[in-house]
């Protein structure tokens, strides 16, 4: 069935019930719940309008342009959740997410989905890249957050090692390793329980749209691998980029690059 605005209103009424409970119990969730609901409506309507025009335009530059915008926003929001930011974090994040997501998306579009013509067919290119970006963003965000935490809390240890002749890599290796682990753990966990505990959104969507279950499952498997590859690639890339930025070629730890959190 197709949904009408009336159906959306029915769904929204659930939120109103929750809002009423919050007010009755004095939970003070009302404001953020309202804001989140309004943002959900506005953002999704906006992307709906944008997608609509990109789909009907059906030109490669419109598709690529939209993907570039999505990539940059993903790169910026990965830094948004960082506790200890450093100067240059935005650049590192955008570079890492662009490289990892675009390499994997290109492989998906040109190799796996090679039968789709033309290659920029918005119906495939946009949701595929979007899912890759969204997951890669998580890994990158967790990885760089962990690295900067790790390095700034262990600063004196790092330095003690370097005073005794350790290279920057020898001093930072453990922190780098932990940061990469932190970044990729969620996607590994997700792959462990997919289909048992969680029904992935894309598969659910395809089932709702009436696709045969086996096809939906194959799609989901492909997507899981794409997401995992992009997340691991992006996490490793961002952690190494951060490491290169926070240590210079003279094996000095550049603590001065850290800025106070601006929130």
């Amino acid at each position: 069935m197709t949904l009408s605005l009336f159906d959306v209103g029915l769904a929204a009424s659930l939120i109103f019930v929750n809002g009423a409970i919050s007010i009755a119990l004095g939970l003070r969730l009302g404001r953020s719940l309202l804001l989140a609901s309004v943002r959900t409506i506005l953002q999704l309507l906006l992307i709906g309008v944008v997608l609509d025009s990109v789909f009907s335009l059906n030109k490669w530059y419109a598709v690529v342009g939209l993907l570039v915008v999505m990539t940059v926003i993903a790169g910026i929001s990965a830094v948004g959740r960082m506790e200890r930011r450093y100067r240059g974090a935005y650049i590192d994040s955008v570079i890492a997410i662009s490289c990892s997501s675009w390499i994997v998306a290109a492989y998906a579009i040109f190799v796996i989905m090679r039968d789709v013509q033309p290659w920029y067919e918005p119906q495939y290119a946009i949701p595929l890249t979007g899912m890759i970006l969204g997951n890669s963003l998580n890994g990158i965000s967790l990885g760089m957050n962990r690295l900067s935490e790790q390095l700034s809390t262990n600063r004196s240890q790092l330095e003690a090692m370097m005073t005794l002749g350790a290279t920057r890599w020898e001093a930072a290796r453990d922190s780098v390793r932990q940061a990469v682990h932190t970044g990729i753990t969620p996607i590994i966990n997700a792959m462990m329980v997919v289909g048992i505990v969680s029904m992935p959104g894309m598969m659910t969507g395809q089932l709702l749209a009436g696709a045969p279950p086996l096809q939906a499952v194959l799609y989901q498997i492909v997507i899981m691998f794409l997401i995992a590859a992009a997340t691991i690639l992006g996490t490793v890339a961002v952690v190494l980029l951060s490491y290169r930025r926070l240590f210079n070629a003279d094996h000095q730890f550049l603590d001065v690059l850290f800025t106070k959190r601006s929130l």
Binding site: S156, E159, A160, T163, A166, T167, A249, H251
Partner: peptide, 20 residues
Amino acid sequence: FGDDVPRFRRQAIYLHQSPT
């Protein structure tokens, strides 16, 4: 400079006031 720095630091060691 560069990769000489670790080798230099190994011969000219800095000791912090508070040991780590």
